[in-house]
Design a protein around this nucleic acid. Structure first.
Lengths: 169, 169
DNA sequence: AGTTTATGTCAGCCTTGTTGACATTCCAAG
DNA sequence: CTTGGAATGTCAACAAGGCTGACATAAACT
């Protein structure tokens, strides 16, 4: 179907990027993102949480002691939206909020034992899916995967990507 | 941080997939998906539409004449949710709904001229972003990217992926 | 004739995003 | 010391877009 008529239809002739090939990339992102979130979503639904809670938990786990403002920058939502989610997590004992030592306005966020337990369950599920995909695709594909994804981010987000700084309380 | 201590920390030794490398893959998906939807989101917001409308428009454009049931399977939402979106698009003249010739229960969906115009704007923006990412990453990376994404999909969705059948009215 | 299928629609609820307004705390500059 | 502004929290209201349940209709199938 409108593959170009020339050679190999498997998507190999990638020097010319036809609209059709780009369309497939777009749809691949759509379908893959759904698969990517499916397993955590199931776990979260059982506990009465949503994807927003997952994101907060993930980034607090990645950078323990991160501040609310920091999280806001990474997650790209309003403080009100984040606050609603954080309040639930704090009230239910998954996240601890400590007043900053140097700057007492800041709140530093940490996962509690319960929080770590949920985070582990979530990321185990997600890692299993990703590991399976990696295994099917092979090592070179993984490198390409990451390279394309990184190039697709907004520049501001590339800054946050992969940076695990411990954010001293 | 827990990068393994051995060789190249850039994420090259991909035969052993450390949790840290998988975490980076997970975050890459998160940040990249945001970048991926950012441009269309801006265009949609101007017109008073959302991502749900975009998805409907995209798949109707991909498979003109597709039925509502078909779309439901692809999009993975309830008919009530989809119907709300479709009603808006039909009322505002972006989508046309034709009663099926063979089976008159079915409605076949088509983009109108206006619908095609918006679709073009949306996919131009998205394709530009993807083309830029592809160019930065190179042809081999693109192949890997697509391979990993396809492996990350739910099996049911792999069925829909890339299939452009014209769905005879 | 009765059942199933495809669709539409109404009502209500939830999550998660938004804006706007306002209070508190507290660092830092004047 | 006072004031400005930054960081945070919180209240209210709203919208998009998911969801469930219930019900209606028309057409197809058996």
């Amino acid at each position: 179907m409108a593959e170009g008529g020339s050679g190999s239809p498997g998507g190999e002739s990638l020097l010319f990027l036809t609209d059709e090939q780009l369309r497939k990339g777009i749809e691949a992102m759509f379908f893959a993102y759904r698969g990517f979130t499916a397993d955590p979503d199931r776990i979260l639904a059982e506990k009465g949480y949503g994807r927003a809670h997952h994101r907060a938990i993930h980034f607090i786990n990645r950078s323990p002691g991160t501040t609310v403002n920091n999280l806001l920058g990474i997650l790209g939502v309003t403080k009100q939206s984040l606050n609603r989610v954080l309040r639930a997590l704090i009230d239910e004992g998954l996240v601890e909020s400590r007043v900053g030592k140097r700057d007492k306005r800041e709140r530093h966020l940490y996962l509690t034992g319960t929080g770590v337990t949920l985070e582990t369950a979530l990321s185990n599920a997600q890692r299993a899916r990703m590991r399976a995909a990696y295994r099917v695709a092979g090592p070179e594909a993984v490198a390409g995967f990451r390279m394309v994804l990184e190039a697709m981010m907004d520049p501001d987000m590339q800054r946050h990507f992969g940076a695990v700084r411990e954010a001293g309380a």
